[in-house]
Structures are given as structure tokens and as C-alpha cells.
């Protein structure tokens, strides 16, 4: 009797959904990656994959496409990736995810984007019913939060430049930003950017029109070009606020949002691993980050000659000195 139960238990353990499942020996796994910038941006993906036993060059082939410099070619990139018959796809941003969904309805996709349910990419966060799952990062909501933080950090701010990726931010959120700014007596100078080449000019244009600070709205393209943005902002002496806390550590003036590394290590990679091992996208509910960090880089502030009120610094989770 006991023995039978014991055997039954072994059987049920074997049927455990994922977790315990390992890679099939000798099989080569293919991951199609549609990221915005250069691939070392995504180191928090590849390290955990390696730890889970998916080692590039041994049993993993990563088909890499970066779209930040060629957003117009998104459909082609998506098609190329799918033609490579990957086991799993990754995509950053609504645009990339939509492009992939256009060309495949069977290959599982892990997407990281602003709001999966709000944009209609999945019907329910709890139970995605297509080949898509991933992480919603509240970026539009947080754009407002960042604007508020930047205004709090710079008392007396009159004109705030906004760097907006037209493909990532629509008109209604911009309208909401305008209204919130008006309540704080700040004038918003929105600089729309359609192509990556326009970023430098847009920042200059903001500066020229009188902006004294810059809110870099959430966009995978801006994250890919954050180096350029930070350099231009520094040259033009514009304190700017960014999407991911890591960006402030890299030299940005301030940043507020979920940790980029934590996002990929804790939420994205486990899904990639599970899907590579054969789980279904519907096994993974869409996750949302619940920890947000405010990081202020005092070194940058000092270089820009900006004084930050003590009360603001107290709110920061991390201050870089």
C-alpha cells in the first residue's frame, strides 16, 4: 500500500510543470531576441540563462536583432527572427511585440513593455491566452511620477523639456503630463523623437526653447541611446530623469522605476527558461514589478551645478556621491 503511494508520488513528481525539468541533452535551443540596443545591455538575461544551463555556443543559439537604429524595419526584423525558427522569442516594447505577433502566433514570446493589458496585447494579466507573456512595467504611469519627482527636485523650475518617443508614447499620456505640469506651474516643452538620429537635436531644441531640465520618457530606444542622451544633457547642462535606477548610476541626474537588472533576472529570465524547456506561455501570468527605486546622482548634480533640497534627498532610496 505504502509502496504504491510512493510510486504514485514519483509519477506526480515527474509531471511537475517546470522547475524540475532539465534541458534535453544534445538539443540546440534557439532564442530570438528583438532588443532595442546592443546586446550587452541585456547582460541580466544571459547570465541567469547560463546559470540555468543554457550556454551560448554550447546548447543555445541567440539570434540577435537590435532595432533602436532601424525602427522602420521592425516588421522585417521580426520576420527574419521567425524564419530562423526559434524556440522562444524576446521583444522590448509594444512596437517590437506587435511586429512579432504579426508574424507568428505559435512561437512563445516574452515581452517587456509598458502595459500589456492596457495596450490590448494580452486579454488578462493573470491568464495570457496567446503566445505572449512577459512583464508590464507601468512606464507611462511612471513617466508622470518622474515628472513630479523632477519638479520636486528642482524647486523653481519653470520650463521642463520632455523627450518623447512618438512610437512609445501616445497623445493621451502626454496630455496628462501637460495637465499635471500646469498644476505645478511648470511649462512642458515636448520634443517628439521619431528616429534615433533626432535625439541630439531634440535635446538641443528643448534647451533652446528654454527648458532647464529634461524628462526622458520611457522608451526602449531611449534606453538604448541613454549614453548619447546623458552626454548631450551634460553638455547642455540639463538635469534629466530616467526610467531605470541603473541609469542614474551610469551618470544620469536621477532615475525612478523598477531595477532593470532585477526586472530581467527575477521576472524575464525565469520565463525564458521555462518556455525554452517547453512550458506554455499561458503557464506564466504577466508580472508587474512592485519595487521602485529613486536614485539621485549627486556627482552629476554637482557637475551641473544644481542644488537639490534636503527633503528630496531623504526620499531617495540611493544617493550617489
Amino acid at each position: 500500500m505504502r509502496r504504491r503511494k510512493f510510486i504514485g508520488l514519483l509519477g506526480s513528481a515527474a509531471a511537475w510543470p517546470f522547475g524540475a525539468r532539465a534541458q534535453e541533452p544534445g538539443r540546440i535551443y534557439r532564442l530570438g531576441f528583438l532588443g532595442s540596443g546592443p546586446r550587452n545591455n541585456y547582460f541580466p538575461v544571459f547570465e541567469p540563462l547560463r546559470r540555468a544551463g543554457f550556454i551560448e555556443g554550447q546548447n543555445l543559439i541567440v539570434d540577435w536583432r537590435a532595432f533602436a537604429q532601424q525602427v522602420d524595419k521592425m516588421p522585417e526584423l521580426a520576420r527574419e527572427l521567425v524564419e530562423g525558427k526559434p524556440d522562444v522569442l524576446y521583444a522590448s516594447g509594444d512596437l517590437a511585440i506587435s511586429a512579432l505577433l504579426q508574424v507568428t502566433s505559435t512561437i512563445p514570446i516574452v515581452g517587456v513593455t509598458e502595459d500589456m493589458a492596457g495596450s490590448g496585447l494580452v486579454r488578462s494579466l493573470a491568464r495570457p491566452d496567446t503566445n505572449l507573456t512577459g512583464v508590464s512595467i507601468f512606464s507611462t504611469e511612471l513617466d508622470g511620477k518622474r515628472q513630479e519627482l523632477l519638479i520636486d527636485a528642482l524647486p523653481g523650475l519653470k520650463r521642463l523639456g520632455v523627450l518623447a518617443d512618438t512610437r512609445a508614447t501616445g497623445a493621451p499620456p502626454l496630455q496628462a503630463l501637460h495637465e499635471a505640469a500646469r498644476a505645478r506651474n511648470v511649462e512642458l516643452l515636448v520634443q517628439p523623437v521619431t528616429r534615433s538620429e533626432e535625439i541630439g537635436n531634440a535635446i538641443e531644441a528643448a534647451k533652446e526653447s528654454g527648458a532647464t531640465a529634461l524628462n526622458v520618457l520611457a522608451s526602449p530606444v531611449f534606453y538604448a541611446f541613454r549614453g548619447v542622451i546623458m552626454q548631450r544633457a551634460a553638455e547642455l547642462r540639463l538635469p534629466a530623469i530616467y526610467q531605470f535606477p541603473e541609469e542614474a548610476k551610469e551618470g544620469g541626474f536621477a532615475a525612478y522605476g523598477p531595477s532593470f537588472v532585477a526586472l530581467y533576472v527575477d521576472m524575464v529570465t525565469p520565463k525564458l527558461v521555462g518556455l525554452l524547456r517547453g512550458a506554455k506561455p499561458s503557464d506564466f501570468p504577466v508580472e508587474q514589478p512592485s519595487k521602485f527605486k529613486l536614485v539621485v546622482n549627486l556627482k552629476t548634480a554637482k557637475a551641473l551645478g544644481v542644488a537639490i533640497p534636503e527633503s528630496f534627498l531623504l526620499r531617495a532610496d540611493e544617493v550617489i556621491e
Binding site: G144, K145, E148, A180
Partner: peptide, 12 residues
């Protein structure tokens, strides 16, 4: 009466 509302996501 609600006097104040602060949030991690939305504006205060």
C-alpha cells in the same frame, strides 16, 4: 474627506 494621496506609481 480625502486630503492627500501618495503613490509609488501615480502622481501625488
Amino acid at each position: 474627506k480625502e486630503r492627500l494621496r501618495v503613490s509609488r506609481l501615480a502622481m501625488d
